[in-house]
């Protein structure tokens, strides 16, 4: 009798241990998957082996959900998708976007009248070949952004009237550049700068124009009517043929009027409260 009880208790304990092990196993597996995704990027989004209940919103695994062909009616679409619906309750676990795209480039963007933003992606083979040309100076060379003021200049890489350097540190892949100069044009190079002042270009950005932060000093007035321009667009019945539109626009600019009246006083911009 006692033996039977012991046996039951023993089996019960075994069951509990088994359940605990299973829980632990699931945890380990989940953790491993997480680590795997983190380090090896996008998981196979066509895989359909995900366990039910693990499909969280944001997981691109949801893209494997039931198939429907284009143009099905609402009801069909609803019923097909019904099978796999889940409540949207979890924080997203989404594969990361690619770290890089195999490009070697720098892109310049305008943030406001005083500040630019640059992001870049540099290819290892390009960097290696430049480092090779630097020889013994390679170890002391720094990566810098060389920001050129190219206002009123057809920039060829050497003719900018003014530039400044910013040392980019910590493996940065983007930078905010405070120019403090509204209504000017800029271009930026990223490159190696050696202690003796040698600059080796890695990539050159697009050029940008920083907007004004005050009223224009130009007060000449030009006036025009554009009715005929739009009549021609309406008559054409389609858009996309910019050339003919452009021609007709020029034709109608003959109606331009000239007046010599001074502009009313315009206040400086104040911060916008709306957003």
């Amino acid at each position: 009798m006692d033996k039977e009880i012991f046996k039951e208790i023993f089996l019960l304990i075994l069951e509990i241990i088994k359940a605990l092990c299973e829980m632990l196993w699931k945890k380990i597996k989940g953790f491993f998957c997480l680590i795997w995704d983190r380090f090896f990027g996008v998981m196979d989004i066509s895989s359909s082996e995900q366990e039910e209940g693990q499909q969280e919103w944001g997981d691109t695994g949801e893209d494997t959900w039931p198939v429907t062909s284009k143009g099905l009616s609402l009801k069909t679409e609803e019923s097909l998708l019904q099978v796999e619906r889940k409540e949207a309750v979890y924080a997203p676990i989404i594969p990361d976007l690619p770290e890089d795209y195999g490009d070697n480039r720098i892109v310049l963007m305008v943030r406001d009248a005083e500040c630019l933003f640059a992001y870049w992606e540099l290819r290892k083979d390009v960097l290696d070949s430049i480092i090779n040309t630097l020889g013994s100076m390679a170890h002391s060379a720094k990566i810098v952004l060389r920001v050129y003021d190219i206002t009123d200049t057809v920039f060829n890489g050497n003719n900018a009237p003014d530039y400044f350097d910013i040392e980019v540190t910590g493996g940065a892949r983007s930078w905010y550049i405070h120019t403090g100069k509204p209504n000017r044009s800029f271009c930026a190079d990223i490159g190696f700068l050696t202690p003796n002042g040698t600059f080796r270009l890695i990539a050159r950005s697009n050029s940008v124009l920083i907007p004004r932060s005050g009223v224009s000093e130009v007060v000449d007035e030009t006036w025009m009517s554009i009715e005929a321009l739009y009549e021609s667009i309406d008559a054409s019945g389609q858009f996309g043929s910019s050339e003919s539109v452009f021609k007709s626009a020029h034709k109608n600019w003959q109606e331009i009027l000239k007046e010599g009246v001074a502009s009313p006083e315009s206040p400086r911009v104040s911060p916008v409260s709306k957003k």
Binding site: M109, V110, R111, D112, A113, C115, F117, L209, P211, R212, S216, E221, T222, W223, M224, S225, I226, E227, E255, I256, L257, V269, P271, V272, K274, K275
Partner: peptide, 25 residues
Amino acid sequence: YPVNQVSTPSPSSWGYKGYHEYWLN
């Protein structure tokens, strides 16, 4: 008023500080 002054607008937005900072930060 079909006749109006010709002028090139200045890049701007109605967001915080009047330019693009709210969407680029």
